[in-house]
Structures are given as structure tokens and as C-alpha cells.
């Protein structure tokens, strides 16, 4: 067992981990941040995407010890300081970019990473960027719509009331 410490959603945390403890496990079981989901266990579905030093990372691919000293962001830290939804979260709600919700945290985290590097992506760019995030429910249409809306671009919407 070894000691790791990192900043998670702005707070310094530390804990005991085995060498093989995955970052996803440390977040879920060590810190009780269960919004980071485990869908495929093999880095393909993207339900576990978090930010490590500002980069989107599949947290089931990374050891907790590799994140020692890093700045980690999870879905639980995405809302605005006053608790209101950030622009991406709000867009996913308004544009029905979710059904069962299991892929949603990973989608929101990937979308945030995309918009950081490309604030006005084309639809095709959104689709290509999200190739590593599987959704089995929505057919992706409303997810793409939500991300386009979050980037401030016009989408034909069935606006939520």
C-alpha cells in the first residue's frame, strides 16, 4: 500500500492505495465520488472520463498512483460555485442529451475537454471527438445537439420547459 494525494474538484485529498488501484476505483470507493461510472472496465466506453491536469482521461485506464500530485476534475465538480448547472450540464438537460444517464458523466466531461480546445466545433468534429464515449440509449442525436448548444451555436431544439 502507498500514500497518494491529489487535488480533486479543488480539494486536496489523500488515501492509501495498492499499486494496481485504478483512479476510477480510488475516486469511487476511496472518495465516494460515484458519478464517475465504470461501464466496460477496458477503457472503451468512456463512462469513466475525468479530467487530469485539464486533459480528458479514462480513469479506468490510469492508476491512482499515476495521478499523485495531479489536479483531478470529476463530474461532481462541474456545476457552478452557486450550485447551478454549468453551460454544458444545462444543455444536456435542456436538449434531452441523456436517457438512462449512465454514460452522461463521461459525455459531459468529454464535452468539456472538447470545448476547451475547440470552443466552436462543427457537428462533424463533435461526432469524431466523442467516438470514445459509447451511449446505448440516445442514438447520440441529442448529445451532439446539446454540445453544439453549449458552444453557443444554433440548434433546432425542442426546448425543455
Amino acid at each position: 500500500m502507498a500514500q497518494v494525494s491529489m487535488t480533486v474538484n479543488g480539494k486536496t485529498v489523500s488515501g492509501e492505495v495498492e499499486g494496481r488501484t485504478l483512479l476510477a476505483e480510488f475516486l469511487r470507493e476511496g472518495l465516494n465520488l460515484t458519478g464517475t461510472h465504470i461501464g466496460c472496465d477496458t477503457s472503451q466506453c468512456g463512462a469513466c472520463v475525468v479530467h487530469v491536469n485539464g486533459e480528458a482521461v479514462k480513469s479506468c485506464t490510469m492508476f491512482a498512483m499515476e495521478a499523485d500530485g495531479a489536479d483531478v476534475g470529476t463530474i461532481e465538480g462541474q456545476a457552478n460555485a452557486d450550485g447551478s448547472l454549468n453551460v454544458i450540464q444545462q444543455a444536456f438537460q435542456d436538449h434531452h442529451g441523456l436517457q438512462c444517464g449512465f454514460c452522461t458523466p463521461g459525455m459531459v466531461m468529454s464535452a468539456a475537454a472538447l470545448l476547451k480546445e475547440n470552443p466552436k466545433p462543427s457537428e462533424a468534429e463533435v461526432r469524431t471527438y466523442l467516438e470514445g464515449n459509447i451511449c446505448r440509449c440516445t442514438g447520440y442525436h441529442n448529445i451532439v445537439k446539446a454540445i453544439m448548444a453549449a458552444s453557443g451555436q444554433d440548434v433546432s431544439a425542442i426546448a425543455a420547459e
Binding site: G35, T74, Q78, F92, H96
Partner: peptide, 14 residues
């Protein structure tokens, strides 16, 4: 066309 009842919980990881 109301959004999914748990949409807010889903987008915040709760």
C-alpha cells in the same frame, strides 16, 4: 416535452 426527471441528477453525477 419535459426533460427526464433525473436529468439534473445525471449531469451532476448524483
Amino acid at each position: 416535452p419535459l426533460p427526464h426527471d433525473a436529468a439534473r441528477l445525471h449531469v451532476t453525477g448524483q
